[in-house]
Design a protein around this nucleic acid. Structure first.
Lengths: 198, 198
DNA sequence: GATCATACCGAACGACCGTTCAAAGTTTGA
DNA sequence: TCAAACTTTGAACGGTCGTTCGGTATGATC
């Protein structure tokens, strides 16, 4: 049996490869569609054999779950860290929206796959954790948005309509943003903030 | 051979039934997902045999195209009629957004199916007309939005960011709107207009 | 260099998909 | 009431899908 340290190194190599496969798969699924891409097609695009995928994932659906996790986990972590600070609501909202838009445009592929599979994700036990993550994030946004509303910093009377508008704008960004486009993530975020705040 | 009038009546009945099938199919696909719903499943949900669908549609994909047409055609027609009037830009935008949001919430199922299948629709010859319709509508929105910007009625400096924000907000409405909710379509539209205009 | 766990291959399999079609049922017009 | 046309049925078919698994290649350990 190899020493403990080597097992760890091995495990890390496995995890890195797995994460890379998730990343590449997100790109392929975003371009061709999750359901429209067969496992052999995906494997070919990734440069491996179809059976090889099953060394890292129990099935196609597990791979999709991994894509969603890779999208949601860092977003949630960053949001919770930002909101843990004791800043004024308006500053928190600014920082949150900037981070959020940046996350969306750096995870465009994940976002497109996620939104495309939303009807499937909204039902079924295997998606519970993904759903929970989405809800937790939305609750965080609702919280800071409500505080901005209470401090009179919002344009709309209804914080829930503000939330829907913001979710719509930010999530849709994944569908039109181009890395070499005119607007940076921060410029886009500032535009959105201009719209919903005074 | 039956007289001409009866042929017409028959044709109308056929068309009505077909339109009803499209309507029902949109609802089923919106709930369960287009790819996740097999033709036998869909047929059972519609109360007909699986083969019966092929009396009205050449295949599952034609049915999806029909759903998109049922969504886009009346929207385009209404938009073109509104913008044919010679009203001030701001009034045109108001009327357009109100009509648009109303259309989205009365065609929620179609919207959800359309957005879910967008990656597939963006490629492939059979989707050309659907793509053209979407582009034509967006051009109409761009036009009136640009005129509002030129007349100084917009909040953002960039009309293209206004467009993306508006598209995001309005299209996302299909995902959260509930008919018995607090907000009417007009109230939602007014909220969106408050955000993007001065 | 022998041994062994890990990483990957790719042909083969069962399941289910969209679609077909001969037959049956229903409606229409005379 | 009869025949023709329209509508619907549902078993059957070929094809593709996701997945399996016995085998091979790779590379680390002693």
């Amino acid at each position: 049996m190899p020493p403990r340290s080597d097992r760890t190194a091995l495990r890390e190599r496995y995890d890195r490869r797995q994460a890379q496969v998730v990343l590449d798969a997100a790109r392929v699924f975003a371009q061709r569609g999750y359901d429209q891409t067969s496992v052999p097609e995906l494997a070919e695009a990734l440069g491996i054999a179809s059976g090889g995928l099953y060394h890292y994932f129990a099935g196609k659906e597990q791979l999709l779950i991994a894509i969603c996790d890779q999208l949601m986990e860092p977003l949630l972590a960053a949001a919770e860290q930002l909101l843990a600070e004791d800043d004024p609501p308006r500053e928190q909202l600014d920082a949150l929206v900037r981070m959020w838009v940046t996350h969306v445009v750096t995870h465009r592929d994940h976002m497109l796959v996620f939104e495309q599979q939303r009807p499937a994700i909204e039902h079924g036990e295997q998606w519970r954790q993904v759903r929970e993550s989405r809800k937790r994030f939305e609750r965080l946004v609702v919280g800071v948005l409500t505080r901005v509303h209470e401090s009179g910093g919002a344009r709309l009377a209804d914080p829930r309509l503000s939330l829907s508008a913001l979710l719509g704008m930010v999530n849709y960004t994944a569908q039109w943003y181009r890395p070499r486009g005119r607007l940076s993530a921060d410029e886009i975020a500032d535009g959105y903030l201009d719209l919903i705040t005074r």
